Amino acid sequence: MTRTESLPGRLALMAAHCAGMVDLVALPVWVGTLISRYGLDPQQAGLLATLFLAGAVLASATLAPRFSRLPSRTVSTAGFTASALAFWGLSSTDTFSTMALLHAVAGVATGAALSVTHGTIARSANPHRQFALVGTALGVFAIAFLGATPALVAEAGGPALFLVFASVMAFAAVACALAFPEAEAAGRTADTPSPLPPPQPLPRAVWFGIAGIAAMGLVQSMTFSFLERVGSDRDFGMAAVTGVLIALGIVDLFPAPLAALLERRWPARRVLLTGPVVQALLVVVIMNATQFAPYAAAASVFAAVMIFTHTFAFGLLARMDTSGRSMAATPAMLMTGAAIGPIFGGTLVKAFGYGSLGLAALAIGALAVLCFSRIPPVTPATLPEQVLA
């Protein structure tokens, strides 16, 4: 029986988090490939990504309330296996209706697996630190994916992207089958077993936190979906834009471990109030830059803001809801916004141009700040001792 604090358990959670959060890394290449290799317009490409994310939302919202009763290893293994098969199917078709169906199926399967992954992380002895650990793994994955996949797609064509996705999901399925850990009761260590407590109603502040993360997810996905396209359409050059994506992956190595180091030094609420503002300002720069330097600088740190802020949000909300249910709904809270983002962003770009994304980001960022402001102040000094251990 694998524990979350064991090396095999942590490695399985890392693999599952990287596969489940593939959209946070892959959206620029994903949407860009659908446009450049399959001939879709921004709205159509955004719709396919939205179908994947909407499927993940549906699965997460359905499973999260039942998290404590689910066989997590079975769900995660089956989910990633089904997702791998769906992406493999996508590599052999260019029919839009078939692609739409398979995107939705992959989303449902991935969302189910990711839901039990995040619920299990939330029930670990220190959810903030554990989430930072899997976030660091996502940064390593981002470097490998963004460094290799654009060149692979350029050489082998659009189907290569979906074969990469299928391989990532298959690897996660094997890791989960071998070592996915058992969820632990909140507030205990891996060596002191105890039954899961009965679920209680979610605190009202948790719902505001969920809404704030969903709003940031919307800004993240609507911008990230067109990060590669805006650079290409402004003639910055394929090599330069690919270099920015690689730099983005390297930068993504740092926000999660930095969040872990600052857990006891920076109040989580302050981070949550600042994150959406920085995120929105970066979107304004990315989507309005006519020179490569400001575009590159803003784009390279864009995803890091979401990773850093979400690590603090995950740790804070996991302590406010010890049942693990709200964090099992992490895919739903992230991907509710993210599911709207590609189609919303594609519609704005098609109708009003890239600059409209900056204005939308400012408005949505203000909504996120309003939601986070409803979370009561929590300082590091007030954290339970077992959380800081």
Rank of each mutant, 00 (worst) to 15 (best):
G9E: 08
G9S: 11
R10G: 15
R10V: 14
R10Q: 15
R10F: 12
L11E: 08
A12W: 03
L13Q: 02
M14G: 08
A15I: 09
H17A: 15
C18Q: 07
A19I: 07
G20P: 05
G20E: 01
M21K: 08
M21E: 10
V22S: 10
V25K: 06
L27Q: 11
P28H: 04
P28I: 10
W30P: 02
G32P: 08
T33Q: 02
T33K: 01
I35Q: 10
S36Y: 07
G39P: 08
D41K: 12
A45S: 12
G46D: 01
L47G: 05
L47M: 15
L48P: 04
L51W: 05
L51V: 06
L51A: 12
F52A: 01
L53P: 03
A54C: 12
A59T: 08
A61N: 06
A61R: 13
P65V: 07
R66Q: 14
S68V: 11
S68R: 15
S68H: 12
S68W: 00
S68D: 14
R69M: 10
P71V: 07
R73Y: 09
V75F: 05
S76I: 11
S76H: 03
A78L: 15
G79Y: 01
G79F: 03
F80G: 04
T81A: 14
T81C: 12
A84D: 03
A86S: 07
A86P: 00
F87P: 00
W88C: 14
W88S: 14
G89D: 01
S92V: 15
D94F: 10
D94H: 14
T95F: 10
F96V: 12
T98R: 14
T98D: 01
M99G: 11
L102R: 02
H103T: 10
A104N: 06
V105Y: 01
A106W: 00
G107L: 07
A109P: 06
L114Y: 05
L114G: 02
L114R: 04
S115V: 10
S115L: 09
T117E: 05
G119P: 06
I121Y: 03
R123E: 06
A125M: 13
N126F: 07
